[in-house]
């Protein structure tokens, strides 16, 4: 390839050492950002799943008021763009906590970006997970739950031993999607100054002007995360579906 005709490309090849892990290289910082991304994504996902499970149960079995509140929650969260939600929940959320602390006579605290990020994305995820899990629970044949009751299982045991394991195969495709979404939504936390992969990338690119290097590197990291998790979810789904014959 003639180097001079593709100026940016030659940049690309010339500047790979910017990613090095030695002094002056951005390697560690990029990996650090990636690690933060993974932490937030995992944290928010677990929080979202927890909210989703209780949200789904509340929607299916809760009192009228519970159902109304959950309906408002899932509708609002899913209707408003994520970026707006993140700004709203982050600033309103930290503001609310600090004015609460103030009212109780405590000094304001500096809420860690990690915790705030997990909370904000987790609340967003929870709304989607509620719907995915609600649908999955409804797909469990009624008779299997009735059988559990007929043999004297308590409602908790029924939930733990029958409803949840039986709904998982129906939920996995939707939940796998939510994982991919949350992994990428972490990039939105850059707007509130949390130093995850996207923000580190932008800083590095801004300082060095080697845009290609850093955005390609970030892309590769996101891609590897996605491919790896796809593999994991495929195996999970296969395991969860081992009781069901293949459709052919």
């Amino acid at each position: 390839m003639p180097p001079n005709t593709y100026h940016n490309m030659s940049d690309l090849f010339a500047n790979w050492q910017l990613l090095s892990f030695s002094d002056g290289g951005w390697g560690w910082r990029m990996l650090g950002g990636f690690w933060s991304t993974i932490q937030i994504a995992v944290g928010a996902y677990v929080l979202g799943l927890t909210i989703g499970l209780f949200g789904a149960l509340g929607k299916l079995h809760g009192s009228t008021i519970t159902r109304w509140l959950l309906e408002i929650y899932t509708t609002l969260i899913r209707a408003v763009p994520e970026l707006v939600l993140i700004l709203l929940l982050y600033y309103a959320g930290t503001g609310a906590i600090n004015s609460l602390l103030d009212a109780m006579g405590h000094p304001p605290i500096d809420i860690s970006g990690l915790v705030a990020g997990i909370a904000v994305l987790g609340i967003v995820q929870g709304a989607y997970a509620t719907e995915v899990i609600r649908g999955a629970i409804r797909a469990v044949p009624r008779g299997q739950i009735e059988a559990a009751q007929a043999f004297g299982m308590s409602s908790i045991t029924t939930l733990r031993r029958v409803t949840i394991p039986a709904m998982i195969p129906h939920a996995i495709p939707g939940l796998a999607n939510l994982w991919l979404i949350v992994a990428k939504d972490t990039a939105l936390l850059a707007v509130v100054g949390f130093s995850e992969l996207a923000l580190v990338t932008r800083q590095a690119a801004g300082v060095t002007h080697a845009y290609w290097v850093f955005f390609l590197a970030a892309g590769a990291l996101y891609l590897s995360l996605t491919l790896f998790s796809n593999l994991l979810f495929k195996r999970l789904e296969k395991h969860a579906r081992r009781g069901q014959p293949e459709l052919s």
Binding site: Q144, A147, A150, F151, G152, M153, G243, Q244
Partner: peptide, 21 residues
Amino acid sequence: ERLRTKLGMVFQSFNLWSHMT
């Protein structure tokens, strides 16, 4: 729940738990 364990129900549509062997 206790009395139900004294009644062994067999359903028309079997209702076996599909995620268990």
